[in-house]
Simulated scan of single mutants.
Amino acid sequence: MRYLFTSALLFISIFSFSQNIPSKDVQIKTAILAAPEAQRAEAKVYGYSSSGDFITLREGTNEVICIADEPGNSGFSVACYHISAEPFMARGRELKKEGKGFQEVFDTREAEAKAGTLKLPDSGSLLNVMTAKLEDVNWTTREVANSYTRSVVYIPWATSESTGLPTGPAGPGLPWIMDPGTHRAHIMINPAKD
């Protein structure tokens, strides 16, 4: 009896989890919202299987890779980035899957980049991240209301001195450099709020 009860709970948990993962089509349509409109149709898209595995949902034919919203997050977040960032992003996903936290992921990739074993994004490559509250996502129509998109331009090893950029936000809509002097140096561009 106990075995049957445990099995039933496991089945319900798996069934509930799979019910929270949008269809392949919905994942693709919402993931590409973070890409510039002209690049969406040919972008490669990663997302999640019905069992929650990270998979390729669609192969791409251009230089853009998009990632669907991760099931179980407290909010909605999708991202699209230049193909040159794929080794960097894939390594980050691998380290997180191993249970490593932000600082350990940062330190590992920093060491690997310095050793020349991790290919970094091309200088000037773009990453866009679109976020919203879950209640602002209509999974049926694939529309997202009240979204916020921030952009990042990778410039590995760059500094404030080499770019002239401040190391913190200088005002609404103005760029600044984050993680200067590291493998993860990037220009942050937060749009001015209306």
Rank of each mutant, 00 (worst) to 15 (best):
Q19T: 09
V153C: 01
G92P: 04
T117C: 02
S123T: 13
M130D: 03
T6W: 09
F11I: 15
A31W: 01
G99T: 10
M130E: 08
W176M: 04
V78I: 07
A158Q: 09
R184V: 00
S151F: 00
N138E: 06
A113L: 06
I187T: 05
P169W: 06
F5G: 04
V105T: 10
D107Q: 11
A34V: 07
V78F: 02
V129P: 00
A31R: 01
N128C: 05
G52F: 15
S84H: 09
E112F: 00
T61V: 13
I12G: 05
S51L: 14
I21C: 05
L33A: 04
I83C: 00
V105G: 04
F106R: 07
A34I: 02
E135W: 13
H186S: 06
P121D: 10
L9Y: 11
V64K: 01
E42Q: 11
S151H: 04
D194E: 14
I28M: 02
A31E: 03
A90I: 12
S7T: 15
K97H: 13
L127Y: 08
R93L: 14
D69K: 14
T149A: 07
K100Y: 15
S7D: 11
T141Q: 11
S125V: 06
K114I: 08
V129F: 04
A79H: 03
D25P: 00
I83W: 06
V45L: 03
N190L: 09
K44G: 04
E86T: 08
R91A: 13
H186N: 05
P71C: 11
A8F: 12
M89K: 06
P166E: 03
K114H: 12
S162A: 10
I32N: 01
W139D: 00
D25R: 07
A185S: 11
A90R: 14
R58Y: 08
P191K: 05
E143N: 14
I155G: 00
E98G: 00
A35C: 06
N190R: 10
K24Y: 10
F5N: 09
S160I: 06
F102C: 05
A35D: 00
K119P: 00
W176V: 01
R109Y: 09
V137F: 10
I65S: 01
L127E: 09
P169N: 13
A31H: 02
Q27K: 13
T167H: 03
E135P: 03
M188C: 06
E63Q: 14
T117M: 02
V26W: 02
A43V: 10
I187R: 03
M188S: 05
F88A: 08
A111M: 12
G47P: 02
Y148W: 12
P22K: 14
G164K: 05
V78G: 02
N73G: 01
T167N: 11
E63N: 10
A79L: 09
N190Q: 07
P191I: 09
A185Y: 07
C80I: 01
S7I: 13
C80D: 06
